[in-house]
Design a protein around this nucleic acid. Structure first.
Lengths: 225, 225
DNA sequence: GTCAACCTTTTCGTATACAAGAAGCATGAC
DNA sequence: GTCATGCTTCTTGTATACGAAAAGGTTGAC
């Protein structure tokens, strides 16, 4: 089974640029509220304004930026409330994926899930947060795929991608890595045992806790100024 | 409470055109697989190719069309399988909306839901499918809003819109209108009683049945050729 | 001194021109 | 007769040019 987390390899220059800009926004090069200037970006990427504009359209559609007519495009300011809302939806989507996966997954697919989880475990033991973050992503994407519903898989992946930066920050909280790992174990167990409701519950909590941790980090940051 | 189902009033010409094309695709002017020609559409709408291309980008992003590099854009062929998958996700999303609505909705909001449902009832009694279809849409959007999660509301609305044409066709099945109405009654009751799990179950089934009915219609059509 | 109006500047939205790649057809060779 | 290759044509992708609208500054009047 191939995973193709990023199925659409960029074809045109504008698609490539959209990808690059998306990454830059998600990784924080452009802070929320910042204005993206067509002209300077065009110059930077050595293209005309047209591909930049096409890239902007893609970003606007996926909700990363907002376009104000005759004003420009701005990196969308996601309020903490909105992010918590997204985590709530993500939790529910993952719960559905887990429920379906427990019902539909083949033995071979579950074996693959176990292997990926083992890699998570290795990264966790090594204290390698970057690696855990990466393998954790693969783990979740695999569960999306195991739902047997391609559309659900895509939607879950989309939201996962959108929440990327907020997922990551909470891994640095003390003890979260190990806790997350333990939750993984239970999830694999539930899916492998063919327990749909249990898998759903576990996944919902696993993701919901991330939302709570995010909230935790946020209020901590606000206290510090 | 304002509903603003279609919040984004079109600003630029390209946005207007995207809206028009979207409607035309959803209502079947362009059949699945058909190629959308930039030049002829530009001529038809009395604009240059640029706004047409921008419109295409919007459509591609919302999944209505696919862009093949150097080939053109084609109306996406949604296979019956894919549509069933979308209904499955829709059912789950609505279930979540219902669960949250039952937990969070205020008495005033529930009263509004009752009123909209009464309008559905009136349309149903009058046998006015068009009107029922319209009011049914309002009913469901209201439940999305009642979830208290704006992001969830938007995502549900998006998918609802995408499934528009397939929802509609199954209303013509004998007895489906009355059945749908009965389900509405139970749903309102569950939300009003503050029974989250029951509301979730009812909504999931209510939507899932639409997927099944769609399947029913499809196989019927295939038999006839 | 303050407020308003006008002008300038900037930037977006659209049009058009040009280049590059793909598909289809025709022609020639085997 | 069939297949392959090359050319033509069509269409997309990108660049550039132009028009329009909004923001901000400056100037003038009160």
């Amino acid at each position: 089974m191939t995973l193709d987390i990023e199925p659409a390899e960029p074809r045109s220059r504008s698609d490539q640029i959209a990808q690059i800009l998306e990454d830059q926004i998600l990784t924080g090069r452009f802070s929320p509220g910042a204005r993206l200037d067509e002209a300077s970006l065009a110059e930077e990427h050595k293209v005309s304004r047209t591909p930049i504009r096409e890239a902007f359209h893609r970003l606007a559609q996926s909700g990363l930026v907002v376009q104000q007519p005759r004003r420009g495009v701005f990196v969308r300011i996601s309020s903490p409330v909105e992010i918590l809302e997204m985590f709530e939806v993500m939790a529910e989507l993952e719960a559905v994926c887990g429920r379906l996966a427990a019902k539909r997954a083949t033995e071979a697919a579950i074996e693959e899930l176990r292997e990926v989880n083992a890699e998570c475990h290795a990264a966790c033991d090594a204290g390698d947060i970057d690696r855990y973050y990466l393998k954790n992503g693969v783990f979740h994407h695999l569960i999306y795929a195991l739902s047997g519903n391609r559309f659900l898989e895509q939607e879950a992946s989309r939201l996962h991608r959108r929440l990327k930066p907020y997922r990551r920050m909470q891994l640095f909280l003390r003890g979260r890595l190990q806790q997350s790992m333990d939750e993984h174990e239970s999830i694999v167990e539930a899916i492998s045992a063919g327990a749909p409701e249990r898998a759903a519950e576990l996944l919902r909590d696993h993701v919901a806790v991330q939302g709570e941790k995010f909230h935790h980090v946020m209020s901590h940051l606000e206290q510090q100024g």
